[in-house]
Amino acid sequence: MTFDFLSLVKKQYRTVPLEGDFIQPSKIEGKEQILWVGCSDSSVEETDVLDVPREEIFVHRNLGNIISNGDLSSESAIEWCLDLLKVKHIIVCGHYDCALIDKGDGSALGGWHKLHELNESHLSKSDSSLNYECRHRKLEEVYVLAEVDWLKRQPSVRRAMEEEGLKLHAFVYDKERNVGYRLVEEQ
């Protein structure tokens, strides 16, 4: 399965401030209902973003919240949460000021350096006035949307979406402002 990196970079979306009650707590106490995919170096606590009890969130952290790299740990977490826990939501949450984007030379990202290059090229053509911080933030958002796009194409995820009503969400957290944002794709 290959990515159309250019369409990911050009994807239209908006950032919407995330309300803590975006996902309601489960009616079954202690039942995990969310798979949270976050960044290994992030200091973002899932319960800082959502008003959901900690025991309702299964957390999987990976370098740069990248799950589409063929990593057995990521694949296992996804299958466990879908097949055994029957989660209702998968959240991919990136964070602004991610060191992977600043310092990643492409080797740790696998093919993701292509996405980085295309994003820079696209931003240069579409809006060359964007400063470094805006470009960095945009790239983090594109990475998160790319991971959600990859998830949507996985057979087990598609099946859970169709048969069990699984919902996928793209979030980005701004540690400086202590605010989470939903990335909402335009139709």
Rank of each mutant, 00 (worst) to 15 (best):
A146K: 00
Q24F: 09
R14C: 12
I78V: 13
K167Y: 06
E75T: 12
E19V: 09
V172L: 06
F5D: 03
Y181C: 08
S73Q: 11
H95F: 05
S129G: 07
C39I: 14
G38E: 02
P25H: 10
K125I: 06
E29K: 07
Q154T: 06
E79S: 11
A170R: 00
V49Y: 02
F171G: 01
E117C: 07
G104I: 00
P17C: 11
E117S: 12
S43R: 13
I23L: 06
K114E: 13
F22G: 07
E185M: 14
V49S: 04
G20A: 15
L123M: 14
V92T: 01
V87D: 00
G106R: 06
K167A: 13
P155T: 14
K138I: 04
E79V: 13
K114P: 00
S7I: 07
I78T: 05
K152A: 15
A160M: 06
M161Q: 11
F5C: 03
Q24G: 08
L8F: 11
N119Q: 10
V148L: 04
L139S: 01
K103C: 08
R14E: 15
S74I: 08
D41P: 13
P25I: 06
I28Y: 11
I34A: 03
L72S: 12
L100G: 08
L168M: 05
C81N: 15
F3M: 06
Y13C: 04
S7Q: 09
